[in-house]
Write a protein that binds this DNA or RNA. Structure first.
Lengths: 127, 127
DNA sequence: AATTTATATATGAATATACGTATATAGTAA
DNA sequence: TTACTATATACGTATATTCATATATAAATT
């Protein structure tokens, strides 16, 4: 199998597949929150976006499958972040979109909600 | 009906819908060719992308429905171009993607093919 | 008017996607 | 071990998307 290769370089990010990925609002909002916040655990995203846990998990799974995000486990929590080795076009695109869409709905409401979710999570769960 | 409004300002371009639109390879290639060439008629696009006429027409219809392109009829030909009043984020995005993807497949092959298609069309059809 | 060319749309089948609900896995704590 | 929390997956269903084929519209030409 191609496991070793997959872990070091990622399968070339297919542009059309990448756009299809961002074509679902929950995933687009998730990508923008990750771009903005750096790293978020599933429960923070679930709360910030107001979606069910399986729905959040499934969409994160898609983002992972296509290679947009990577994960880090810390105890019971799994933290998601944008892959650090995204192609330039993907990174530029997210930056441009985040800049231009951050202050219009539904994205504008996500920022305060994710901040509250982070605050709550960090205070409730030690540190 | 909202005809008058629709013709002057366009219905706010929904970001997720916009991405879903570009999530289909034929439409993504089409959008990049229009960005690159400015204006193309259906037959030029059909030939450049090597797709069937109904398929090309349907995808152009989607691009039109979402408000990414506008058309101009000239005799029997209908010329498509990107809308001039796209929101900044959409325009920036297309520019960034065109710049970064132009020289990798399948986009890299489209440029020479569309040039040939344009040359043939212009020579065969007067001027 | 009849024909030809360019473009658009309708129809039906195949496939893909999203969602809710139920359940599985894995870590933590008791 | 048992119980609890966080996250992931499976399953069935509803809906959306895509395509090929056939047909419709509209301009140009004869």
């Amino acid at each position: 199998m191609t496991q070793a290769a997959a872990s070091t370089e990622h399968a070339r990010l297919d542009p059309a597949r990448f756009f299809r990925l961002l074509g679902e609002e929950t995933r687009l909002r998730t990508a923008l929150l990750l771009h903005q916040q750096g790293e978020l655990c599933v429960c923070e995203l679930t709360e910030a976006l107001g979606v069910s846990q399986p729905k959040m998990s499934r969409h994160l799974g898609h983002l992972r499958d296509v290679g947009l995000v990577e994960t880090r486990r810390s105890g019971q929590w799994i933290h998601y972040r944008l892959r650090s080795d995204l192609p330039a076009w993907a990174h530029d695109l997210l930056t441009a979109v985040a800049r231009d869409l951050a202050d219009e709905p539904p994205f504008s409401g996500d920022t305060p909600r994710v901040r509250r979710a982070i605050a709550r999570h960090r205070s409730e769960c030690g540190r």
